[in-house]
Structure formats: C-alpha cells, structure tokens
Amino acid sequence: MAEFFNKTMARNIYFGGSVFFVLLFLALTFDTHRQLPQTDNRGEITEQTSLGKRVWEENNCIGCHTLLGEGAYFAPELGNVYERYGRSTEAIKAFIKSRPEGGIPGRRSMPQFNLSDEELEALAQFLKYVNGIDTGDWPPNIQG
C-alpha cells in the first residue's frame, strides 16, 4: 500500500467503522424487536408450545433436521411439516410414534424417542406454531 495511506489511517477506519456498525446493528436489532410481533406468530406461543420447544431441543432434533432452513441436512425440513402433513398434528404424532426401534435396514430412519403423550402433543403443537411464522414465503414449495 502506498505511503499516503499510513497505519494511523488504517487504525482509524478500523475503530470508526467498527463502532459505527456495532451501533447500527444494535439500532436494527431494536427495530427488529419492534416489528417482530407482526411476523413471529407469538400469538400462538403457549405453555404447550414452550414444552414442545423443550422436547425439540432435548432430543436434539436439529442434529438431523432443519427448522426454517437451519440445522443438519440429513432429514427433511420441519418448519412447514404441519402444512406438508395436511395441517394435521395427529399425522405428525403418528409418524414420530411409528419409528422402528432398530431402524430400517440400509436406510436412514428416525430413532424411536419413546415420547410421552403429553410430549408428543406439545412437540406437534410447537411445529404447528413454527409453521405459522411469516418467513417471507420460504420454503419455495411444500417439500421444504
């Protein structure tokens, strides 16, 4: 780099730029919080969906699935699974319940988690709540 651009100038860009963009990011975060009630489907958050989120977390579902596109890419997207299963929490529950303990020879298979009825219902309600989040029309189609 040429002589006219010295270390002090570089340092000032670093400090000034960082401070400016940290502040901008905080301001945008504040605004995002303000706008979220319109999109994040918080009206559907209940004690049951909160329990469902815990069941989701404590069985490490994200270790195979994506949820709104984030997670592992080994198993289907579940942000829209409620839609894909014909808007039926019963169908979701039936699938989770039906997984064979020993898997399927040669194939990927979801483990049998032996969830209680209460946990199953909560998990299905959680997935229904997630399905209602306004994601800007993502995923592109029902297959996720």
Partner: peptide, 16 residues
C-alpha cells in the same frame, strides 16, 4: 448407508 452404526450412534449424535 442409512443404518450405519444405527441405533448405537445415530446421525444426530455423530454430527454433534
């Protein structure tokens, strides 16, 4: 091979 090491080490555990 979808059932490799299943159910001893399921995918989610190995990935974690």
């Amino acid at each position: 091979v979808g059932d490799f090491l299943f159910p001893e080490i399921p995918f989610n555990v190995a990935r974690m």
